[in-house]
């Protein structure tokens, strides 16, 4: 969004919005309802109990195992921009007083792509949930696997999916939230095998990115192709939940699906 001091322009409908209104509306356009992308930090602040978040795994940083051209420069730029080492921010938090293991993706860090670090953090988030007996909540925002780490990235799909299997065995619920965008290698691994999947309105959700599809000769797509609404219509997700209702919806899910965990603790 183009931001001046007091006004900004909606990325979707291009209407001018007062910054104050925009923030109060959780960066959702009051006119067209477009959900603008937000950072992991903001997401955590707006979703979980105040000051309840304890970040973990902040010491993990990507190297350049493939010696891939320009990768280090891209990483450093993203690190400076976000103040983080990776797209995934993970840790323990509370949701309406209930403990949860969370991981939140930031599209602003190299398109939220999943390399070794993101894969490790997602895996640890799910393992933490399984080991400590609390629900896992993951907010996805990713263009897919990180090309710059090659096959190592592809294997993160298997690693993270295996960790979901551990949650199932431990009997802890895992909820995935698809935010704009949730694509490719992330969608085709841990994101799609959650017990419950909810998505933000109009989030881009799909397997093949536009440039890859074009390369493969895919043309003529429906208007709502690769949106949350398309996924809902085709039975791939449970619900579309506006940002303002996300906390309440997640709370209900944790209370119900994770109810057995709370009783044990009480």
């Amino acid at each position: 969004m183009k931001q001046s001091e007091a006004f900004l322009q909606c990325q979707s409908c291009k209407k001018i919005i007062f910054s104050v209104d925009f923030e109060q509306n959780l960066r959702v356009c009051p006119y067209c309802g477009h959900h603008h992308r937000i950072s992991a930090e903001t997401r955590i602040q707006w979703t979980f109990d105040e000051d309840s978040f304890e970040e973990t795994d902040t010491d993990l940083r990507s190297g350049n195992p493939l010696d891939f051209p320009d990768y280090i420069d891209k990483l450093r730029t993203a690190e400076q921009k976000t103040g983080k080492f990776d797209s995934i921010t993970g840790g323990r938090a509370k949701l309406s007083g209930m403990p949860v293991s969370i991981a939140v993706a930031d599209f602003g860090f190299m398109g939220g792509s999943m390399g070794s670090v993101a894969g490790e953090k997602i895996t640890r988030c799910l393992e933490r949930a399984a080991n400590e007996g609390m629900p896992a909540i993951i907010f996805c925002a990713s263009g897919g696997a990180r090309m710059q780490e090659g096959l190592l990235s592809l294997m993160q799909m298997a690693k993270t999916t295996a960790a979901v299997q551990q949650c199932r065995e431990a009997g802890v619920p895992y909820i995935a939230v698809f935010t704009d965008p949730t694509m490719a290698g992330v969608l085709a691994s841990y994101a799609s095998v959650a017990d419950v999947i909810v998505a933000e309105p109009k989030a881009l959700v799909g397997f093949a990115g536009a440039r890859v599809s074009k390369q493969a000769g895919v043309s003529k797509v429906p208007d709502d192709f690769q949106t949350a609404e398309f996924c809902l219509k085709h039975g791939m997700i449970d619900a579309i939940v506006p940002r303002k209702e996300m906390r309440a919806t997640l709370t209900s899910l944790v209370k119900t699906l994770g109810g057995h965990l709370l009783e044990v603790k009480a």
């Binding site: 799909m157 691994s189 841990y190 994101a191 799609s192 397997f207 493969a216 895919v218 398309f230 085709h234």
Partner: peptide, 27 residues
């Protein structure tokens, strides 16, 4: 070369199918 990236595959959940298959292999 890759999984099918077409409209049909998307509408039937190609991503979920791949993820579920990976998970099944771990079971």
């Amino acid at each position: 070369p890759a999984a099918d990236p077409g409209v049909e595959s998307e509408s039937r959940g190609i991503s979920e199918a791949i993820a579920a298959s990976i998970m099944k292999m771990f079971e």
